[in-house]
Amino acid sequence: MSTVSDTRSVIGSPDEIRVAHRAHWGWWVLTGFVLLCAAGIVQMLFTNPNLEWNVVAGWFFSQSIVFGLLRTLELTVLAMFFGILLGMLTAVMRLSPIKILSTVAWFYTWFFRGTPLLVQLIFWYNLAALFPTIDIGIPFVGPTVWSGNANQIVTPFMAALLGLALNEGAYMSEIVRGGILSVDQGQQEAAVALGMRTSRALRRVILPQAMRVIVPPTGNQVIGMLKSTSLVSVTSMPELLYSAQLVYNRTFQTIPLLIVASIWYLIVTSVLSVIQYYIERHYAKGGRRALPLTPWEKVKRMFTRFTPAQTITADRRA
């Protein structure tokens, strides 16, 4: 009926035609309900005197809490660092054709995933009770190369780090292994056909591609680790939660101090999520789709309507 020029006068040139999403009336009802609930929670947060926001504010930047926070961050970073290292090593060992390596790796994963983290932490903390001295040498055969007092070597911090990192390594190993297995076998073949040795192929070809699968669950693990560090209070390490507990055991302001700790956990988790986002973006290079938007670009998008969703790059392999 209408001519081309008619159409143009209404919606502009054909390449500007956009899809308009029609909202369903049910969505409006649901949105209203959610907003109402949110308003209720906000009102409660402001009016409930038991939350004692002045106490929260007073302790938020106090020395004991900030030191606890730094301890938590230190433990999280170190335990994750060694955990990821151990996990990569174990994953590669698991996939090795050399039987003894894959068996050792399997046993490690089995043991450290199979026992509670809390038990492992208590065990390391009490290592001196089990082995007063630590001797390094070949069992039954060689002379002792090195020997030391367990109490001096395994400090509370060491016990915490050992427990967290060894446990983390076992979980990370499965995450890394899954990532490596997700890479097409042809990639390994192409790499060795080009004269690369297995180690180089792994480093340059397989792992960079595996990272896309490895990063999201690793982000989970980091956030989990952040909170698992609270378990190390059993080794009398004053990390964030334990520091808060030490305060409220004295002042009986239990709820405000737990709020202080929770807000800090939430802040750190938010920062970690943003970091994870950019790491994922980095490893999305050469992926099927265009790079995902940065958070800032997403905010801008919210205010500019009628822009198409993520541009899909041409994938001409029919």
């Binding site: 097409d184 042809g186 990639q187 073949e189 192409a190 790499a191 056909a193 080009l194 070809v205 960079p208 591609q209 490893y283 290079k285 050469g286 992926g287």
Partner: peptide, 14 residues
């Protein structure tokens, strides 16, 4: 020995 595969096997991240 250069090898060319049926499924190309280019490294997608490069």
């Amino acid at each position: 020995m250069g090898m060319v595969f049926q499924s190309f096997n280019l490294f997608p991240h490069m």
